[in-house]
């Protein structure tokens, strides 16, 4: 089985703040991490490789310092990591990024046919959830999004559980396919020491704009129709109502219950049978 994992280095958004004056992201001094959803995709690929044999290749696009994320990703036990890095890629939106990544995957596919591609359901910095599906579309692979469990992988098919707004679906696709994954998919591993050492000694491959026959019109700012008009921090939530229950708890409790009914936070179950308790 030949697995490819698409992985993005993102700023740790729990530490990013928005400049209240300029409304831009303050990224200075914010540590970079592997996009958490991608990490779960990587973990699943490694687990499947360990079970079925094969190879895991990590592909990422980003500035040269994204090598750090790739080295870290290698500690999971991946076999190869490729960083797509070139000034010409800079400013790419999800459309252009999907194009660039799909070109790289196509190149891999030509020499080592891919069976399964993993991508996070979205990146925590942009939350677009477009890049994974964009890659699948361009490669002509079926896509199974929001996967929470890989139920079965055979030589020709993959069966997954996916999360939907109303529940779960079990779906199957022909290989090669692309999955975008949720965090529930698995628990991340604590890498073994030999894998830590392999990763420490590993130098990711860097592919630039000349490595592949890219169409310059489809990448970078030129290939990116998205424009960001404004970034702003949503206003903070105001504090809730506080009831002082020190004096007369019974009547306060009654008031609170009434308020909860009024705001439809709780309601009487119409199916419940009345009766004495």
């Amino acid at each position: 089985m030949n697995f490819v994992v698409c992985l993005k280095q993102v700023p740790d958004t729990s530490e990013v703040r928005i400049d209240p004056v300029t409304n831009t992201l303050m990224r200075e001094g914010v540590p970079s991490i592997i996009n958490p959803y991608d990490a779960h995709g990587l973990e699943e690929a490694i687990r499947l490789k360990e079970k079925m044999g094969g190879k895991v290749t990590i592909v990422s696009m980003g500035p040269p310092q994204a090598k750090e994320a790739l080295k870290k990703a290698m500690t999971y036990g991946a076999d190869r990591a490729i960083l797509l890095s070139d000034r010409a890629f800079g400013g790419s939106d999800s459309l252009a990024t999907a194009y660039i990544l799909s070109m790289a995957l196509q190149k891999i596919h030509e020499t080592e046919p891919i069976d399964l591609v993993f991508a996070g359901k979205e990146a925590i910095d942009g939350d677009t959830a477009q890049t994974g599906p964009g890659i699948a579309q361009r490669l002509g692979f079926p896509q199974l999004t929001y996967a929470i469990k890989v139920r079965e992988l055979t030589d020709t098919t993959v069966t997954v559980e996916r999360k939907t707004e109303s529940g779960r679906q079990i779906v199957q696709a022909q290989l090669p396919a692309l999955l975008t994954v949720e965090k529930e998919l698995n628990d991340l591993r604590y890498a073994s020491l030999p894998n830590m050492m392999k990763a420490a000694a590993y130098e990711p491959e860097v592919w630039d704009a000349k490595t592949l026959p890219f169409d310059v019109k489809q990448m970078g700012l030129k290939g990116s129709p998205t424009s960001v008009s404004r970034i702003f921090a949503p206003p903070g939530r105001s504090g809730g109502e506080i009831f002082d229950a020190t004096k007369d708890p019974a009547s306060i409790a009654a008031t609170v219950v009434q308020k909860l009914f009024q705001s439809n936070i709780i309601m009487v179950n119409p199916l419940a049978k009345g009766g004495k308790r």
Partner: peptide
């Protein structure tokens, strides 16, 4: 001995 699997050096 480190705290990782196969962790002896």
């Amino acid at each position: 001995r480190t705290g990782r699997a196969e962790g002896d050096l």
